[in-house]
């Protein structure tokens, strides 16, 4: 992203939520809210028109909900990263949205700093947002499926396990005594093998297939 501000679109059917979210994000230097929308149908148009870096999508909305909106927004080129915003962390919709390719989620009741961090993290694409929460969600709502994709090497499995803990590339490099470049290669090969568009989706798949135990 460099010095360019992170450009954000907010989509939520509740005006007071949009207003609060905008207030929080605008208070942060380096983040600009470029547009607001009130439902999933609007989300796609706004993403196309404004090409934001991040789109904050409410998961439950009348009409087109956050999951379908996530799918549609991600077909755009360039596609923004999707940050799902939700009222409850036990919401099964959130996991569906993550499987649909959302990069992370944030609770509406989180502190402003946590929300800002989530937006920055999703924009940078280098971390998993709320690794514990993703695991809890997976434990509650995921139906296990068997993995039938290309085989993973020992090293790739190790990297995947650390990804699931929410580690960044440099952190993984440090704990495996590897170069950051090597880790980056492993991660992109992992994403390709799992058919995941980003780390979050890779971790959801890893939990669902048991490649990483939910324990």
């Amino acid at each position: 992203m460099g010095d360019q501000p992170i450009r954000v679109v907010i989509v939520d059917d509740e005006p007071l939520v949009r207003h609060g979210l905008r207030g929080i994000l605008e208070s942060e230097p380096g983040i600009t809210v470029v547009a607001e929308g009130e439902d999933g149908a609007e989300a796609v148009g706004l993403a196309r028109r404004h090409t934001p870096d991040v789109i904050c999508l409410d998961v439950r909305m009348p009409g087109i909900d956050g999951i379908r909106a996530t799918e549609r927004v991600l077909t755009l080129d360039p596609a923004p990263r999707v940050l799902v915003i939700t009222t409850f962390d036990s919401d099964s919709y959130v996991l569906d949205a993550l499987r649909a390719g959302a990069s992370g989620f944030v609770l509406k009741r989180s502190s402003p700093e946590a929300i800002i961090t989530a937006v920055r993290t999703v924009a940078a694409g280098s971390h998993l947002v709320f690794p514990e929460a993703v695991r809890d969600l997976a434990r509650q709502h995921l139906r296990p499926v068997s993995y039938d994709g290309p085989g993973l090497t020992e090293r790739e499995l190790e990297v995947l396990g650390l990804l699931a803990q929410g580690r960044s590339n440099p952190e993984i490099a440090q704990s495996l005594f590897l170069g950051v470049e090597t880790v980056r290669t492993h991660v992109s090969r992992l994403l390709a093998k799992l058919g995941a568009r980003d780390r979050t989706q890779a971790v959801v798949i890893a939990y669902q297939t048991g490649l990483v135990p939910l324990g």
Binding site: E14, L16, V17, H19, G20, L21, R22, G23, I24, S27, E28, T87, F88, L107, K108, R109, S110, S111, P112, I115
Partner: peptide, 25 residues
């Protein structure tokens, strides 16, 4: 309860957070 109380409280949390940030800036 989910739609009503949950959303109201979430919005309160967001608004309060925004207010605090405004106060600091």
């Amino acid at each position: 309860l989910h739609d009503g109380v949950g959303h109201s409280l979430s919005a309160i949390s967001l608004q309060a957070g925004a207010g605090r940030r405004v106060l600091a800036g």
